[in-house]
């Protein structure tokens, strides 16, 4: 949890805004440090967290969270965290074996064209459980990252459907929060996007930006865009990732410059 980011966003683990959909995105940069922030943030806020870790192993997230002062293993044991390790689940689908009967969450790998229904079912069931296991706050869904779904052959439209369903289930019905990370490829190709191809991360990013209530975009510079009912407000900060956190500052005020 980066305290500086919290103060920028006016957020603290004690006072959560229900029903928020936060989009993290990047281009020619790496926004994955933000997902670690939100993971530790919501665990501190005593929310029940469902984490779809599609790109890295559990040990990676666990080691980073340890540095940020949160133990994922303990959270898992206490029933606060549901961790779906995409890499582990994918193997049984990618290399079919007679004996294996893994969870259905990664079923879309068998036929990516069919969409992400199985993954959504997993999210809904684990988010709806939160009422039963006592003591935890509203459910939170974290996804790292949506871009890998595109690489695995899922259509951008299907990913957009998935995010929309998740938002309806978690944000609207259960009054929880959703945080999704999307890592975009390459340059901003304006001309190509105008052709109207329903492919690629640029198209998906525009669709998701339309859905979300708060979008954090990491580029060579870092941008925060908050959308209220009436007006859009955009703030730009510069950042530096350290060993155990990140610091943010207004443009041109880094200690390296001053």
């Amino acid at each position: 949890m980066f305290t500086e980011l919290n103060s920028i966003l006016n957020a603290s683990p004690d006072s959560l805004t229900p029903g928020e959909f936060i989009l993290l995105s990047d281009r020619r940069s790496d926004a994955s440090f933000l997902i670690h922030h939100f993971l530790s943030f919501y665990l501190r806020a005593r929310c029940r967290v469902c984490f779809l870790g599609l790109v890295q192993s559990f040990s990676h997230y666990s080691a980073v969270s340890q540095r940020l002062g949160v133990s994922l293993t303990q959270a898992k044991e206490k029933g606060q965290l549901v961790f779906m390790e995409g890499l582990k689940e994918a193997l049984s689908t990618l290399i079919p074996q007679a004996s294996s009967s893994g969870s259905q969450a990664m079923d879309f790998l068998r036929d990516p064209a069919a969409g992400l229904r199985s993954l959504y079912e997993f999210v809904r069931s684990s988010a709806a459980d939160s009422g039963a296991a006592g003591g935890w706050g509203p459910p939170v869904l974290l996804v790292d990252d949506l871009g890998v779904l595109l690489s695995l052959g899922v259509r951008a439209g299907a990913v957009l459907d998935f995010s929309h369903y998740c938002r309806a289930a978690v944000c609207s019905q259960l009054q929880g929060n959703v945080v999704m990370l999307l890592r975009c490829d390459g340059e901003e190709e304006e001309e190509e996007e105008e052709v109207g191809e329903e492919e690629g991360s640029g198209w998906l990013l525009r669709g998701l930006t339309h859905q979300c209530s708060l979008s954090l975009h990491v580029e060579v510079c870092w941008r925060r865009r908050r959308r209220d009912a009436q007006h859009k407000q955009k703030q730009i900060f510069q950042y530096k990732v350290h060993d155990k956190g990140a610091s943010f500052f207004a443009r041109g005020t880094s200690s390296a410059v001053l």
Binding site: S57, L87, K88, I95
Partner: peptide, 14 residues
């Protein structure tokens, strides 16, 4: 190729 690399990463990580 990307799907293969995903599977490869899954194999190597474990």
């Amino acid at each position: 190729l990307t799907t293969f690399l995903y599977g490869l990463r899954a194999l190597l990580r474990s």
